[in-house]
Amino acid sequence: MTPVQTPTAAALPTGDAAGPGPGRGGAAEERSGPGARRRARRENLAGYLFMSPWIAGFALLTAGPMIASLYFAFTDYNLFDAPRWIGLKNFTDMFADPRWRHSVDVTLWYVVVGTPLKLAAALAVALLLNQKRRGQGFYRAAFYAPSLIGASVSIAVVWRAIFSDDAIVDRAQRSLLGMDVGGWIGDPDWIVYSLIALTMWQFGAPMVIFLAGLKQVPRELYEAAEVDGAGPWRRFWNITLPMISPVLFFNVLLETIHSFQIFGSAYILGGQAGGTCGPADATLVYTCYLYVQGFENSRMGFASAMAWMLLLAVGLVTAVLFWSQKRWVHYEEAAR
């Protein structure tokens, strides 16, 4: 997948990622008799033929490259000369590189601040829209639209304009808060927030998922709570949140993984030039630095090592989230 932010990835199933469906009985249950065996063989053949594009793609474009990447990570490779084995040097160089540490900081800040804000916005608006009122469908569609265009170069260009000196955000900040930072785009401390704002603007994709989750919460639960005298806040805390926790879990997981991989918006918004991203590298997110090292400085080995660190980080975050799931995600049999 490209790093383009689309809502597509946000539509994973809630609950367990179940194995393949019932299918056609499977070969196992008809294992007796020569006719059955022939049929099993035919099923295998048909299965692998149908699967052949996927298998070729997996071998050629996923598994093979991953093995190659792991090898490159331990080499000095500039595309001109053959890769030269240098052991762990890429990794020690990486940890000693202040720019690498800086790009990690930028990325973590972006993920840690941006993802919760985006999800909070998505949930808040979903709660608002989860009422039977006229225009609901219209609002839902309109709020969703930014998720489709948010990752485009066009919107990054627009964002640069809206957040620059004397444009709307700068003026609002000056007149409402009395703060003059002279536009977020030029300020190394502020530009990352314009990137976060761009992420938040695309709250529509998780919102749609939240809405679908909210629709499945049984009305009777609220009615019973109301009879018990629970206020809106307690109803939200005791009923809504637990009931939609599976949806929340998947939104958190996917948005977090997605955020780690942001590229295009940061690249254009920061006005990528001369191997920098933003003023004083302020939007040098991890993938931008990977791109700079790999494609501008021709350090393919170093960039591969960086990619594996990203994979480890994302893997770790995923594992922690799955582990924490037990504590706060409630799978109600009825909800499915």
């Binding site: 002279g182 536009g183 030029g186 006005g271 030039a273």
Partner: peptide, 11 residues
């Protein structure tokens, strides 16, 4: 010049 401004007007 203020480097922030310089960076902002780029390119």
């Amino acid at each position: 010049s203020d480097p922030k401004k310089v960076s902002q007007v780029k390119p």
